[in-house]
Design a binder for these strands. Structure first.
Lengths: 161, 161
DNA sequence: CCAAGACTGAGCAATCTGTACAGTGACATC
DNA sequence: GATGTCACTGTACAGATTGCTCAGTCTTGG
């Protein structure tokens, strides 16, 4: 749907200080409250803002180890594997991908030792042929969206390259 | 820091309906407002809740293509590469990992064709020896945290296995 | 010149927030 | 058994915010 410069600033502001309300945001942005309210409604209605879910740190609730597992799936078992992985709490996200491997999933565990348990739970299922796991050591760039929003806001109005 | 059953229910509730306030949450959970307020303060203070940043959908702002790139780094260039990747808006997150490859990053692009531009920008840097990219086709399990929270809340009080 | 759409500034009722305080029950300590 | 700590409840109050509406102004495009 595209966002303009004001949308961009609004999203940045919300990302920086999520607790501020519409009124405070309007003050910071130098626009009327109604404008902020309208923009927010539009952004949410258009699916740009999916929600304001609490950003929970797995490490803080006892799962400090993160890993990515590439899975190779037996032909035709994709649906079953997806359903299986969806039931494992330690699977935080799952993608089907091109290239080497068929799926990529993000896992968390209580410890490196516990990771073995999680992997066993993940791959201990008909249809998963092979899994290769990479443990995350550092996370130099945590999941972020602001730079992209800025970029998108800058490109506003320009022809789709 | 660990969370108990009430914390778990609170987090679930917030994940399901982020816009509700403390008062409404206390009604839903059947506890006093002060209790919810205290729990929230504790969860935020303890780092369990990092924030309530808007959950922006990259696809909705013109970046419908997601990919994961595994990078191989030349010895000793890690720091420079991290700094370089941090400046690329299309790099949504970056991890250093064990195993095949040294870093894993999540990319988005405006199209499959545009992905080439992004990859060139990412790997066009001294210190990156090789990159292998996997394009995301489907996302059967979007990034989630509720099941893990439930698990963590269930384990509350039990000895660390 | 006119219509449509976006923004402003203002107002109002209802609600929520931040904060404080006293009372209660559970639990561990001495 | 007495005591102190801690978390939760229920209540209260002032101040701030929200949702909504309305009329007027600006800008853009036909």
């Amino acid at each position: 749907m595209g966002i303009d410069e004001l949308d961009g600033r609004l999203l940045e502001l919300l990302a920086a200080e999520p607790r501020i309300g519409v009124l405070e945001a309007s003050r910071r942005l130098g626009v009327a409250r109604g404008t902020v309210q309208a923009r927010l409604d539009r952004l949410q209605g258009g699916g740009v803002i999916r929600g304001f879910g609490p950003d929970v740190d797995p490490a803080a609730i006892g799962y400090p180890v993160t890993a990515f597992a590439t899975l190779e799936i037996r032909q035709g078992q994709g649906r079953d594997v997806r359903a299986h992985l969806a039931t494992v709490p330690e699977v935080l996200e799952l993608h089907t991908i091109t290239g080497r491997g068929d799926m990529l999933c993000r896992l968390v565990a209580r410890s490196n030792a516990d990771l073995q348990r999680v992997i066993d739970k993940v791959v201990g299922f008909e249809g998963i042929v092979r899994a290769s796991t990479a443990i995350v050591m550092e996370n130099p760039v945590p999941l972020r969206i602001v730079p992209l929003v800025r970029q998108a806001a800058r490109d506003a109005g320009r022809p789709v390259s």
